[in-house]
Structure formats: C-alpha cells, structure tokens
C-alpha cells in the first residue's frame, strides 16, 4: 500500500504541472488564438532561472518562486510584442509553427550550454524532510508542491472568473473590437495575458526543479502530454483545465502502480478513448 500512496502522490505532483500548464495554454488560447508550443520551453526556462538565481545570485527558492515567473513572463511579453502580435488574423496554424520555432531556439540554446543531463537544485531547508501520516511517509516538499499548485490554480480561476479584470479579459476573448470601443486597451491586455500564461508555466518549472532536476529538454516531452490533456479537457473552461490536469495526473500515478508499462502512454490512450466517445472533449464546446 505504501507504494500505491507514493505513486498517487507522484501522480498528484505531475497533475499539478499538467494543471498549471494547461491552464496557461487555455488562457493564452482564449485571448491570442494561439496554441503556445513554446510553453514547455518556457517551463524549462522557469527552472533554469531559479537555478541561476540560486547559483549566480545567491537568491533562495522563495524569491525564485516570485522572481522566475516575473522574469520569464517579461521574456514572454517581449516575444508577444516582437513576434506573436504580427500573426493576428492569420490561420491558427501559423501561431503553432511560430511558437514551435521559438521552442526549438530556446531549447537548442540551453542544450548547447548545458548538454542534456540534469543540474541539481536543492530542496529549501524549510521544506526538507518528511512526516509520517500513519499510512504513508510524506516528503514535505512534495506535499507543498501539490498544495501550492492547487492554491495558484484556484487563485487564477478566481482572477479570471470573479474579478473585474477577469471580466474584461473574458469580454475581450468574446469580442475584442467591442471591448476596445469601451476604451479598454485590448492589445496591452493580450500582452499581459501572454505574460500571465507564461508566468504560470515558469512557476511550474520552479516547483519541479528540486524534484525533476533542471534539464534543457524537461519541457519538450511534457508539453506533448499537456496537449493531450488539453484535447481531453477542452480549453473552454478554466476549472475544467484544472480538474482534468489533476485527474489525469492521478490516473497516470495509478497506472504506474498497477501496470507500469503503460504509464507513459495512458494519457494518450485516454485521449483516444475520449475522442471516440465525446469528440468535443469533456468540458469543451465544438471547436
């Protein structure tokens, strides 16, 4: 049973990353009509920024948790201003191709300087060790990742669904021209939205650095799984993205325990099943 709970915890952690990343993808897609293929590369950048902050600047994990998403978010906003904004009005697929190119560039540059092996990032002192819950041993850092991700996801949901800013955002997603007519600077909102989505990816990167090590290709395979998550959940609903992300992480964790050979493929198989039964995705409208 110990092993089962351990795999469930790993599943919840992966689920946190799926949720944070698919949430960012959904928010970006809503405003920019772009599937951000660079999301995995920016997740990796988040982890690397945390690594640089610690090893070059002596800035600890807690500040990295705040600074890395801001730094990567600003990088993302520069990308949006210099490149993505020129794609407005073109077919969706150009956005996918452009961000795929950006992902190749970013990952290639990091691979040149850091190879393909992992760099260690130590767990912060306050989160070291673990506690015995009676039925299992819980490493504190892992528990922290799940709880903190959940809080960030819910805060994002609150920001978008319940605040005035979020209302502007949702309105601009539906009809940007009309929202502009009310005097709201929609292009600036688009830039900020991209920064927000990218910041969430970078935050996931910082969270994963102590668990998965810091590697140039850490986001490359992850983003494909997240695409499958997005196909399963649909991008229509924020809460849908969060729930699907965590649920699929848990299912993957269970598969690791019961049938480890399929743990790499289970999300993709589920995607196939969902497409066969309900082609629009679980929460999605026809797209």
């Amino acid at each position: 049973m110990q092993a089962l709970y351990a795999q469930l915890l790993v599943g919840l952690i992966n689920g946190s990353f799926y949720a944070l990343l698919s949430l960012g993808l959904a928010v970006i897609f809503g405003m920019l009509n772009i599937i951000n293929f660079a999301h995995g590369a920016l997740y990796m950048m988040g982890a690397f920024v945390a690594y640089f902050l610690l090893n070059l600047g002596g800035i600890n994990y807690w500040w990295a948790l705040l600074l890395a998403p801001i730094i990567v978010g600003i990088f993302g906003m520069i990308l949006e201003r210099t490149m993505l904004q020129w794609l407005t009005g073109l077919d969706h697929l150009y956005g996918l191709l452009l961000t795929f190119g950006i992902a190749l560039i970013v990952q290639g540059v990091f691979q040149n300087y850091f190879g393909s092996s992992g760099l260690p990032y130590a767990i912060p002192d306050q989160l070291k060790g673990g506690m015995n819950l009676g039925f299992m041993f819980l490493p504190i850092y892992r528990g922290w990742v799940v709880v903190f991700s959940l809080v960030v996801c819910l805060a994002t949901w609150f920001l978008i669904e319940k605040t005035r800013l979020g209302a502007y955002l949702r309105a601009a997603t539906e009809n940007p021209t009309l929202v502009r007519a009310f005097g709201i600077n929609v292009p600036r909102m688009i830039t900020l939205t991209y920064g927000l989505g990218v910041g969430l990816a970078a935050l996931a990167g910082v969270l994963s650095a102590p668990i998965n090590q810091v590697r140039p290709l850490m986001g490359a395979d992850l983003i494909i799984v997240v695409f499958a998550v997005v196909v399963i959940g649909g991008m229509g609903s924020i809460m849908g993205s969060i729930i699907t992300g965590f649920a699929l992480g848990v299912i993957e964790g269970l598969t690791k325990y019961f049938y480890p050979e399929a743990s790499n493929t289970v999300v993709f198989v589920l995607m196939v099943l969902v497409l066969l039964v309900k082609p629009t995705g679980l929460t999605g409208r026809a797209a």
Binding site: L98, F100, G101, I102, I105, V106, G108, V109, Q111, N112
Partner: peptide
C-alpha cells in the same frame, strides 16, 4: 536546432 527554429 537553433537554426531550424530560427528558420521557422
């Protein structure tokens, strides 16, 4: 890889 990305 970087060059291919740039071409994209």
């Amino acid at each position: 890889t970087v060059i291919q990305g740039s071409i994209f």
